[in-house]
């Protein structure tokens, strides 16, 4: 008796699951695609310079490399409207709490690019008393751009990789 009921409800759940899948493909997937497509070409970077890699961001935003071609605007002041945090180089012990605070203030969905050897592993400053050995301990990172400093082209490639990641994001929330 109990077993039969379980089998019956099991079959029902399978049916619901199937309908759910169909609905997700038919309605949810285009929505997910549309939402993430909208996000990927309107990335607003935070204006938080942490170290010397910001010079190459300046060059990338300048008229030769022109970051806006790829759908990322110049660095912007208001955190509530930003969805991209570019960590431009070394993060020191003094800056680390501020970096976390900036990340926490940004609205979801948000992405992080770790630019330069210092923000990935500490780089040249591995034995300094005031430098963090990579920022993974503080905030999650989506794309790593190696180099010391990375060329502007390398940074732009990292940006395109991030856009590819957003395009393939598995859910509607963009993550």
């Amino acid at each position: 008796m109990v077993v039969a009921q379980q089998q019956k409800s099991g079959a029902f759940q399978v049916l619901v699951g199937k309908i759910d899948d169909v609905l997700q493909y038919a309605i949810g997937d285009p929505m997910r695609y549309l939402a993430n497509w909208g996000r990927l070409y309107s990335l607003w970077p935070v204006h938080l310079e942490t170290a010397c890699c910001s010079v190459e961001i300046g060059a990338a935003a300048g008229s030769r490399f022109d970051m806006e071609r790829f759908g990322a605007l110049e660095a912007f002041g208001s955190l509530r409207q930003c969805d991209l945090l570019i960590v431009m180089g070394t993060v020191t012990r003094k800056l680390a709490p501020r970096l976390k605070l900036v990340y926490d203030q940004m609205a979801e969905p948000k992405w992080v690019i770790a630019m330069g050897a210092c923000s990935i592993t500490g780089g040249l400053y591995f034995d300094s008393y005031n430098v963090l050995r990579g920022i993974d301990d503080i905030i999650p990172v989506d794309v790593y751009v190696p180099g010391c400093p990375p060329r502007a082209e390398a940074f732009l490639q990292g940006l395109v990789l991030l856009q590819e990641k957003i395009r393939r994001a598995p859910s509607l929330s963009g993550r």
Partner: peptide, 9 residues
């Protein structure tokens, strides 16, 4: 905010 201790290094 960018003090990296160059002199000690």
């Amino acid at each position: 905010y960018v003090h990296r201790g160059e002199e000690k290094m």
